[in-house]
Simulated scan of single mutants.
Amino acid sequence: MQDQTRNQIGLAIVGCGTIGRIRAKLARDYPGVGWIGLCDVKSDIGKALAEDVQADFFTNDFRELLARPEITATIIATDENFHFDPTMLAVEKGHDLFIEKPLATDARQSAQILAAIEAAGVDAVIGYTQRFRRRFLTVKERLVTGQIGEVHTVVTRALMNRMVPIATVQRTQDRATLTPMVVSGTHSLDMSLWLMEGKTPKTVYAKSNDRVLSKWGTKDSTLGLFEMDDGTLFSMNISWALPEVWPGAVYGLEIGIVGTEGVIDIEDTHRDLVMATNFAQGAGYAPEGYKAPARHVEFLTSYPPGDLYDGELWGPMREETNAWYQRLYTGKRTPHATAQDGHRNLLLTMAMDLSAKRGVPVDLPPDPDELMAELT
């Protein structure tokens, strides 16, 4: 029986951008959150959010925030390159954690974070929002109950327009590990491995190219083939170099799962709901400083966090965030990715980049020091 004790949440959010804002607004509406503190290096963004959610505290210094005695849980929602320091401090303070993927963009730091989390015994989850969509939960249940027998082949394909890579890499010069797989392909890799739970990747062979996005310091596409410990084959392919006017706001995903007794074919490209209009549509992913070209055709529902109705976000990120608050408040089991999942996913995405660089298969799991020595 699950623990139904109500544990009032004192919440810190480090990073008040697009995702931090979404999770903060949901926190203000959740009855189990009794205190909210915010941090962002940009005062205008942070103070605007603090006012909107009536936060109890705001600072530009995450150390000042995480020292507050009211805090029991922390959300790390900074840019990808800046997760390490606030995460390690939150672990030291004993906070429960929600960390936007990845744990870190340095494999050695990711290993340090995981080791610290395990040593401290804190509950830490990673932001893989797609686990909370109805279609994938339905597929997971069918696989767990053996409806297609033993899975032996998985084919995954992800297509994205180039708004995300341009918006991501333009904010930093530290771009060596900001690749299609590490930043975005990790979502479809996590989903595929979650659906294949119990199978362990043994080797990977991958190839990449960079004809379009090389001027931005990243790659266009990475295609890889994993062999699992039981002989299962898993192909994981992504291109995030589609034109900025591509109708998909962010992600278009297809997964084919073949078992000994059946198959599950997932078409998640959002082409079933199309809008064409004379009015210009903005970017699905548009952080500060990024100006996207006008788009006049859109695959509706293709923005991964969800969709706006009446000024509020509805969809998987709402489900994911509220489920985490419920996890903390009542002890409820949830399908969140664990810190172990997050570290594994980072190593595997980097192993694909390493294989593409070497031109040969890479044994798994790779050594974090070896990854960083060769990839940076």
Rank of each mutant, 00 (worst) to 15 (best):
P201K: 04
V182R: 01
M181H: 11
Y205N: 13
W194N: 14
W240T: 04
Y251L: 15
D174A: 13
L223F: 12
S188R: 01
M236L: 14
E254H: 08
D190A: 13
P180C: 06
T260Y: 07
T222R: 05
S208F: 01
T186D: 09
E197D: 11
A206P: 08
G252I: 07
W216H: 08
T179G: 05
D190W: 02
N209A: 09
L193G: 02
P201E: 07
E254G: 11
W194V: 03
W216G: 00
V204M: 14
L189W: 03
E227W: 03
E244V: 05
G231E: 01
A176H: 14
D210A: 15
Y205H: 10
D220Y: 00
L242K: 03
T177A: 11
W246G: 02
S208R: 07
L193H: 03
K215N: 04
K215Q: 08
V250M: 12
Y205T: 05
K202C: 08
G185A: 07
W194D: 11
S184I: 08
K202T: 05
P180K: 00
D220H: 01
L253D: 06
P247S: 07
D229V: 04
L242Y: 10
S239W: 00
G185D: 01
D220K: 01
G248N: 15
I257D: 03
L242C: 10
M191T: 10
P247I: 05
T200R: 14
S214M: 03
G259D: 06
D220F: 02
V250Y: 05
G224L: 13
W240A: 07
L242T: 03
L178N: 04
S184A: 14
K199L: 15
D229Y: 02
T203R: 13
L178V: 08
D229F: 08
Q173G: 10
K202L: 11
T218K: 00
D210H: 05
N209E: 12
F234N: 04
G231L: 03
T186N: 14
K219I: 03
A206D: 12
R175H: 07
L225Q: 03
H187S: 10
R211I: 08
V182F: 05
M191E: 05
S188I: 07
N209R: 15
I238M: 12
T260M: 09
K219Y: 05
I257K: 04
S188D: 11
V182H: 01
L193Q: 14
F234W: 11
V182A: 10
S188M: 15
T179Q: 04
Y205C: 10
S188E: 08
M196C: 14
L242S: 06
I257V: 13
M181V: 14
P243T: 13
I257Q: 04
K219V: 08
G252D: 09
F226T: 06
A176V: 11
E227V: 09
E197M: 09
S214T: 04
G252H: 01
L213M: 12
S192Q: 07
W194K: 10
K219H: 11
D210I: 00
P180M: 05
V245Y: 05
L225F: 06
V204S: 09
